[in-house]
């Protein structure tokens, strides 16, 4: 049996930067981000997959980082809320959350935004009901749900406008 204390190599690309270290296998992606890399934008709500506060993109797909051992996704590309925009240059989804009052305390917001960005990629945005269903993995204790859907619809409308603009 292998020695339990042995750390394992972990290689990731996080927000475009390469990360290489030896890690105990029990470290979750969420704890790696928050505790070791100071990327505290990704939140820990429940730590059991139930709230969505820890949502990040792994190889372009939205996942709950609290349920993933960091060593188990070798060479994955991880994007967190810190990887989206910068001060003065917000991602359109971040701006839409501000415009539409889509949060109160803000604790669920990074997870909501990461999830919303993936949702648009997936294309489950035909109606408010569909958006609501496909955002159901992100809970908001403040009940900002209507604002969140408004924000998502704002970005969809902008994208459509940009597309017709290009076509013209």
């Amino acid at each position: 049996m292998t020695d339990l204390s042995v750390a394992r190599p972990c290689r990731l690309e996080i927000n475009g930067k390469s990360y290489v270290a030896d890690l105990p296998p029990c470290v979750t992606l969420l704890d790696l981000l928050r505790e070791r890399l100071d990327l505290t934008g990704t939140k820990k709500g429940c730590d059991h997959g139930q709230c969505g506060a820890c949502t990040v993109l792994v190889d372009g797909k939205r996942v709950k980082s609290c349920l993933i051992f960091a060593v188990s996704i070798p060479d994955a590309k991880v994007i967190t809320i810190e990887g989206l925009g910068s001060e003065g240059h917000l991602h359109p989804m971040q701006q839409a959350f501000i415009d539409r009052d889509a949060f109160q305390c803000g604790y669920c917001t990074p997870g909501q935004i990461m999830s919303a960005i993936a949702l648009l990629e997936e294309g489950h945005t035909q109606s408010r009901e569909e958006i609501r269903e496909f955002m159901s993995g992100n809970l908001c204790r403040c009940g900002a749900y209507n604002g969140i859907i408004d924000a998502i619809e704002q970005v969809i409308a902008q994208q459509q406008k940009n597309r017709t603009g290009e076509a013209a």
Binding site: G49, G52, T55, K61, R62, V63, K64, L67, I68, S115, A118, L119, E122, H124, F134, S136, G137, N138
Partner: peptide, 9 residues
Amino acid sequence: GASPQIRNR
């Protein structure tokens, strides 16, 4: 079942 994030994993 579950949520999009969970079904992705």
